[in-house]
Amino acid sequence: MTVPVEYVIALSGVLFVLGVLGVLVRRNAIVMFMSVELMLNAANLAFIAFARARLALSGQVFVFFVIAVAAAEVAVGLALLVSIFRSRHSIDVDQVSSLKG
């Protein structure tokens, strides 16, 4: 029994929307970043599903690229957040807001 591709795409759409909402609603920078990861993984799921439905391998190749880039993003992002936490003792984005105009 195979799961129809529409179901998988629907799931990935739900995950993507959850990720977007997470970034917009949550105020903790780490949680916002986790939500971004959720968006990327929703895209990965869609790639895999489409790659299987269309028998096109390039979709699976793309997933590897996304995973690698996401790892690089984590390295840079967590380093930034740790550096901010050290100087401010908070990573709440509402408290890190001295720049306004």
Binding site: V20, A29, N44, V69, L80, V93, V96
Partner: peptide, 23 residues
Amino acid sequence: EESAMKYFLLGAFASGFLVYGIA
């Protein structure tokens, strides 16, 4: 630091849209 954090979070957010669009 604040500028880097804002740039990073919104930049990563934008990449999410781009990747899903490409998917």
